[in-house]
Design a binder for these strands. Structure first.
Length: 828
RNA sequence: GCGGGCGUGGCGGAAUGGCAGACGCGCCGGACUUAGGAUCCGGUGGGUAACACCGUGUGGGUUCAACUCCCACCGCCCGCACCA
């Protein structure tokens, strides 16, 4: 395409130069800035979401560098995981080979984008030099009592043939990765006690003021703290009891039945040998099957049946029937609920449908509830009634009084419950970090000593879709000796959830090649916490919560100094095409490779930053990309022909006071642009408006060039303007700006040059346009001297003849002057 | 159901309570040209001959002044979803 700049030549040239001589070298004297983007899974190809993620990160990193920071900006690969193993099963390629080939391809693509990564720090989680430390971390948790193995009913994805953590079951009970409906299995698995940290993970959210509120709220809801009491209901006729968790001990007098989850262990005991045993068992089986299916298909219908047994209300001494019902979950609280139909909507629906009595014990202040006409449970605060000695108390006080009384009786206690479950980290798959544990007949479960790490993943294994780790079929791996007694032992064959590998990688970047420790304490203390983290909101819970958990454990262990890993978080929106997410099946995928090849990396980056603010979803537009390409060409055509003339004027900054007319206006616009771009990048992350500010400057410079005769041009001014243009555009379009920077006579890299400073004096205006309003409606615009105070402005405007004309026949009620902006005259 | 977000030209999007629609795309016109799907210049919310006037999802409210703040509602998107 004639007349277009040769982006291919320029981009290749600078990428090669920067690879040999990085434009910016480390400088410990500068304040640090750790800029991190979520590392990708090496699927084989970059997609537009990656381009967006890394373009945003690169603008921030380059801007911070130019603003005087020493910036850590690393990249790596989240390289363990299922797709590699599935490729092995279906195509016979070894996961290692598949992953490494993908990494090689994607690295090339990333380099073609010109992102300013420090490639010397590149890591891959599947490298033994990395996963050795993932295993070491497992041991740290193990030794602190935070890793344990237990038999449990766990989420099982039949398609991935492995277990999943609760966090990996999404939507209507489907697998986070493959969207297959998740089932249950009874398995002995390794867990991390993240629940020990529930309270701190919750309360420390307050420290994360640099995170989007949305993400903090999502984590808060996920942790799901609820405060209440546990209450014991003795079983009639046996020494056993049923314990319930409730947030409403004030409604204890309203209990008309007790409900157990169908899977509750007491159910068997209560019904053994009774006439209803078979029926109950059948119901429980059916409920279990139903809960495995989509929960929403039940449409919230509440069904249950009696066990025939009774328990005793500890306060009233009343015997209440024990039921089982599908709406009680074994996993939450104690798996048992006291039924208070008058004050809990679920109990209400269940009681109404199944004919259980409803007893009102809380009434709204100054009103009475009528059982007959009640359409729903009354769940609000109120005054206790029908509650023995507690009647008359407001429900808040009733809560305290009743729990206090129960505590005195030994029948209840304060209790805080969390929705958060422990993190299941075992995976029955090959392509992950082996769990460093061996099982010995005489010593039991034995951790592999640190000195023996890494537990290497054997390369020569068979890949079969069995639902068992291929490591089970690998005798060399399986059989080992016990580190304790030296006797024969068997290795753990499960590998770790890949989220474990990605929960600590940002520490490893600080000392990526260290072979003696996971990280150097000095390096971690220098760089952590991450100052800016950028990534998709889809990681709001899983990755970010796990990383916070790890950081707290490491902090407790004295291994890091920071309490939180990521100070500021930017969650970018998705890249859409035709209103929906790009996907192969919809055929609306735009390949970054093709865009870079056809229009260049600078264009691709610029468009993706310009098309929308970062948090919002971005609609891909082929024409919009062309527009950005045109803009960069405009920059090139503006600067390149002037380059020779400008070369002699580098660094010149004509004083604003020495300029008049159009020259002065250009000077002002140059500095307005500096101010706008700086604020948009630094404070608001509004890269779209930053780019538009630069576009306005370019438009103005074209006008200046075309309208000011060559003899009248101020070359010193033009040089300042072009320098500024290149500097503020550099983080967005690093290659073109570097090319033009060199062409205009600069020696050092534009990326190593200091960010321009806004000269306040240059912003000064002599005259401003003031809007004249009548009752808020615009009637006129007037040029007045800048800086007039309110009184001066009012006097000036009211004295104008055209303003007086507007006021003929009207009475001025009030005048509101806003200096340098407007005057609103209120008339009748 | 609960929690969060978003509704502005033909489109993507701008607007510390103070000139709605910056910037870009598209479209229209002009210049240059053998040519233009290159480039440059101008125009472009609706409405009108021109004014007036009407315009930020809908209806209220606060204010001298509301896209912006408050209340109610409608629509779309995201998260959680029988959490006791």
């Amino acid at each position: 395409m004639a007349g277009h700049y040769d982006f291919k030549m320029i981009e290749t040239k600078w990428q090669e130069k920067w690879a040999i001589t990085p434009p910016v070298e480390p400088d410990k004297a500068r304040p640090k800035f750790y800029c991190l983007e979520m590392f990708p899974y090496p699927s084989g190809k970059l997609h537009m979401g990656h381009v967006r993620n890394y373009s945003i990160g690169d603008v921030i990193a380059r801007f911070k560098t130019m603003s005087g920071h020493e910036v850590l900006h690393p990249m790596g690969w989240d390289a363990f995981g299922l797709p590699a193993e599935n490729a092995a099963i279906s195509h016979g390629i070894h996961p290692f080979r598949w992953t490494m080939d993908n990494i090689d391809r994607m690295r090339v693509q990333l380099k073609q984008l010109g992102i300013s990564y420090d490639w010397r720090r590149e890591i891959a989680t599947c490298h033994p030099g990395y996963y050795r430390w993932t295993q070491w971390l497992f041991l740290q948790l193990f030794h602190r009592g935070l890793a344990y193995k237990k038999k449990a009913t766990v989420n099982w994805c039949p398609s991935c043939a492995t277990v999943l953590a609760n966090e990996q079951v999404v939507g209507e009970g489907v697998c986070e990765r493959c969207k297959t409906s998740v089932g249950k299995r009874e398995l002995s698995q390794w867990f991390f006690k993240i629940t020990d940290y529930a309270e701190r993970l919750l309360s420390d959210l307050e420290l994360l003021q640099g995170w989007p509120e949305k993400v903090r709220i999502m984590q808060e809801n996920w942790i799901g703290k609820s405060t209440g009491a546990e209450i014991d209901f003795p079983l009639v006729g046996t020494p056993d009891k049923i314990t319930v968790f409730t947030t409403r001990p004030d409604t204890l007098y309203g209990v008309t039945y007790m409900v157990l989850a169908p899977e509750h262990p007491l159910v068997e005991k209560l019904t053994a040998g009774t006439a209803g045993e078979a029926a109950v068992r059948e119901f429980a089986a059916r409920a279990r099957a139903m809960s495995e299916m989509s929960r929403t298909s039940q449409d919230g219908e509440k069904v249950g049946m009696s066990t025939g047994a009774f328990c005793r209300n500890p306060l009233t001494g009343e015997d209440v029937p024990i039921l089982i019902a599908n709406y009680v979950l074994l996993e939450y609280g104690t798996g048992a609920v006291m039924g208070v139909p008058a004050h809990d909507q679920r109990d209400f629906l269940f009681a109404r449908a199944n004919g259980y009595p409803i007893r009102v014990v809380v009434e709204p202040p100054g009103a009475e509830l009528d059982l007959e006409s009640m359409q729903e449970a009354y769940e609000e605060e109120g005054v206790l009634v029908n509650s023995g000695p507690f009647s008359g108390l407001p429900s808040g006080e009733g809560k305290k009084a009743i729990s206090g009384h129960l505590a005195d009786m030994g029948a209840g206690r304060q209790k805080i419950n969390y929705r958060l479950r422990d993190w299941l980290i075992s995976r029955q798959r090959y392509w992950g970090a082996p769990i460093p544990i061996v099982y010995c007949e005489s010593c039991g479960t034995v951790p592999v000593p640190e000195a023996e790490l890494p537990v290497l993943l054997p390369m020569d294994v068979a890949f079969k879709p069995t639902g068992q780790s291929p490591l089970n079929d690998c005798p060399e791996f399986l059989h080992t000796t016990c580190p304790g007694c030296g006797g024969p032992a068997r290795r753990e064959t499960d590998t770790m959830d890949t989220f474990m590998c990605s929960s600590w990688y940002y520490y490893r970047y600080t000392s990526p090649r260290d072979e003696t420790e996971a990280w150097s304490r000095t390096a971690v203390d220098r760089w952590l916490p991450v100052d800016q983290y950028v990534g998709g909101v889809e990681h709001a819970i899983l990755h970010l919560l796990y990383s916070r958990f790890f950081t707290k454990v490491l902090n407790d262990a004295g291994l890091v100094s920071n309490r939180e890993p990521f100070t500021n978080l930017l969650t970018q929106g998705m890249v859409l095409k035709d209103g929906t997410k790009m996907s192969k099946s919809k055929g609306n995928v735009v390949s970054p490779e093709e865009i870079v090849d056809r229009l260049g990396a600078d264009t691709a980056r610029l468009f993706i930053l310009f098309a929308a603010p970062p948090e919002r979803d971005l609609e891909w537009s082929d024409q919009g990309v062309e527009g950005c390409y045109r803009f960069l060409n405009r920059v090139y055509r503006l600067v390149e022909p002037l380059a020779g003339s400008l070369a002699g004027w580098t660094g010149s900054q004509p004083h604003a006071a020495a300029l008049v007319g159009v020259h002065r206006e250009i000077k002002r616009l140059v500095h307005q642009t500096i101010r706008r771009v700086t604020e948009d990048v630094e404070k608001r992350f509004n890269f779209n408006t930053a780019v538009s500010a630069v576009m306005e400057l370019v438009n103005a410079l074209y006008q200046y060039r075309d309208r000011v005769p060559e003899v009248d041009r101020r070359w010193d001014l033009l040089a300042e303007a072009v320098e500024t243009l290149l500097l503020v555009l550099a983080p967005f379009a690093p290659h073109l700006t570097e090319e033009l920077w060199q062409a205009t006579g600069h020696g050092a890299s534009v990326h190593a040059t200091a960010w321009p400073r806004c000269d306040e004096e240059a912003l000064q205006e002599d005259e401003v346009t003031v809007v004249v309003q009548l009752n808020g409606r615009i009637k006129d615009r007037v040029e007045v001297e800048a800086g007039l105070d309110a009184a001066g402005l009012e006097e000036k405007i009211m004295g104008l003849p055209q303003v007086q004309d507007l006021l003929v026949g009207k009475t001025v009620v009030k005048v509101i002057p806003v200096p340098d902006k407007l005057v609103n005259i209120v008339v009748r």
